[in-house]
Deep mutational scan, measured.
Amino acid sequence: KEYCRTLFAYEGTNEDELTFKEGEIIHLISKETGEAGWWRGELNGKEGVFPDNFAVQINEL
């Protein structure tokens, strides 16, 4: 499994977007979303897309 840590808080504006606080760990599902600048991940049981410049991939939890 791949993970990323959020660098900033983000408020999702669409139903398919994740909302998160700074410093949260998102399970990274895919970097290929069909839309440049967006990754797909899962946080707190919800799957959605989020801007990749708001997070950095990490090697271990």
Rank of each mutant, 00 (worst) to 15 (best):
W39H: 03
E24Q: 11
L61Q: 15
E60V: 08
S30H: 03
L7P: 00
L18C: 00
C4K: 03
F54H: 14
L61M: 14
E32R: 09
V49C: 11
G41Y: 00
F20I: 05
E42R: 12
L43W: 04
F20Q: 03
F20S: 04
I29V: 13
E47I: 15
C4P: 00
G48Q: 00
W38I: 07
E22I: 07
N59V: 07
L7G: 04
E35I: 15
K31I: 03
L43H: 05
T19Y: 06
F50V: 03
N14E: 10
K21R: 12
K21P: 09
Y10P: 01
E15C: 11
E42H: 06
E15F: 06
E11W: 09
D16V: 09
E35Q: 15
V56S: 09
N14Y: 07
T19G: 06
E42F: 04
T33Q: 06
I25K: 07
N14Q: 14
E2K: 12
F20C: 01
W39C: 05
T33M: 06
E60C: 11
K46G: 00
E35C: 13
E35A: 15
Y10A: 03
G12C: 07
A9L: 04
L18S: 02
A55T: 11
G23K: 03
F50W: 01
F8I: 11
G12I: 00
N44V: 01
T13R: 15
E2D: 15
E2L: 11
V49W: 11
E11D: 11
E15M: 09
R5C: 06
E15P: 13
N14F: 07
Q57V: 13
G23R: 04
V56C: 08
E22A: 12
N53W: 07
G48R: 01
K21L: 10
R40Q: 08
G12A: 15
H27Y: 11
C4L: 13
D16L: 12
A36D: 12
C4Y: 14
E15D: 14
R5T: 07
T19A: 09
G37Q: 06
T19W: 04
W39F: 05
Y3A: 07
N59T: 11
A55F: 05
P51A: 06
I26T: 04
A55K: 00
A36Q: 15
P51N: 04
I58G: 08
G34W: 02
N44M: 10
V49Y: 13
F20G: 03
P51V: 00
K46C: 13
F54R: 14
G45C: 08
T6Y: 03
G37A: 00
E60P: 14
E24D: 13
I58D: 14
E35P: 09
I26C: 06
G37K: 07
R5I: 05
C4N: 00
G41S: 02
E47L: 09
N44T: 05
N14T: 13
E60Q: 11
A55D: 03
L61T: 15
K46Y: 07
Y3T: 04
L7Y: 02
F50G: 00
Y3V: 05
S30G: 08
I29F: 03
A9D: 14
F50D: 03
D16Y: 12
E24A: 08
A9R: 11
F20D: 05
N44E: 13
G12S: 11
T19V: 03
P51Y: 01
E17Q: 15
A9E: 12
I58F: 11
Q57F: 08
K21C: 10
G45H: 07
G37M: 01
V49L: 14
G37Y: 00
Y3L: 11
E17W: 01
L7V: 12
R5K: 15
V49N: 12
V56R: 10
G41K: 01
R5Q: 07
E15Q: 12
E32P: 04
R5F: 05
V49F: 12
C4V: 07
G41H: 02
E11A: 09
E2C: 07
D16G: 15
L7F: 02
D52E: 15
H27D: 07
N44P: 00
G23N: 12
L61E: 14
G41L: 02
N14R: 12
K1C: 03
I26Q: 02
P51I: 05
E17M: 07
G34M: 06
I58R: 06
D52Q: 13
T13L: 12
Y10F: 10
N59Y: 07
E47Y: 10
V49A: 08
P51G: 00
